[in-house]
Design a protein around this nucleic acid. Sequence first.
DNA 1: TAGCAATTGCTAAGCACTTAGGTATTATGA
DNA 2: TCATAATACCTAAGTGCTTAGCAATTGCTA
Lengths: 163, 163
Amino acid sequence: MADHVDRILTQWHSEKPDLDVSPMAVIGRLNRAAIAVESRLADTFARHALDSASFDVLATLLRSGAPYRITPVELARDAMISTSAVAQRLNKLETRGLVRRAANPNDGRGTLVTLTDSGRELIEAALPDHLETEHAIIAALSVEEQSNLAALLQRIHDAASSS
Amino acid sequence: MADHVDRILTQWHSEKPDLDVSPMAVIGRLNRAAIAVESRLADTFARHALDSASFDVLATLLRSGAPYRITPVELARDAMISTSAVAQRLNKLETRGLVRRAANPNDGRGTLVTLTDSGRELIEAALPDHLETEHAIIAALSVEEQSNLAALLQRIHDAASSS
DNA sequence: TAGCAATTGCTAAGCACTTAGGTATTATGA
DNA sequence: TCATAATACCTAAGTGCTTAGCAATTGCTA
């Protein structure tokens, strides 16, 4: 059952026997698991002519509910990226006719991003497929293990964020 | 205890009550935890004038043991990046005098990358600091929870990779 | 209420990755 | 053995992020 991370730990043990490299067992696997999942999800996105970044924007608009209209700042907060990255994502999506930008009547500085009909059709079609892929991955764990994993990840997240 | 992922799930429930979005609870937190950890580790790397990519190369060379000499192909496999990305990482590190490239006497096509003395000093200094940061993060979990988490992540990794 | 600070959203430039493609060398098998 | 395939490594170009910086508007406060 030795995986890549195990081999790295073994190498460290023989080269630096005095160092406690046990944290790498967790953090190394966290990284690799995240990369493997992301890569698997990308296949599904590609089948719908999307990438992870575009899916993210369209899904955020969809789950905001009718009239599917939010600000770039909200998109940035939600995706944990800069507002500049949002602007560039929106440029791409607007060119494809999947979203539309309009002036925010309540804030002269602001913009409101709306899902177009064709954008909504696309994300409504991609979403069930995406969920099926996610389900196929986490089905490797029992329901109890899933909630266990989610709780542990949340605590790691908090520990990494604090300070 | 409601975090960002909980709020996203709540939004989906009210907008698409028929969809089972429970996989997002795990995969969403996997992503966010990995990003938070990566960001925390980056601070430590920066204190040693390194980034994650450079640290990765130097650490791989160090743990290979004396004479700290491996091929770009091995580096690519280990870091799960293209050999082209390795070439660019090495260009940077070689300019800084942290690694050195030489022809592989056993393979006319090949190159051998060696850790220079100054590269070795740098990584030997950064490594304990890095491990301390990793330890500070995973100390949020008991030892048993840590090995539990590592095992669950390995299974998620395998599930995402297969097929 | 005038002026300064904060916010919003954009483009430009820089960075690290990817894929594409080139060159050189080694391995294969007809 | 010799043509062809595979491998190793690189640069170039494209992509999507970041930070820097700009212009416009709004919010705060003296």
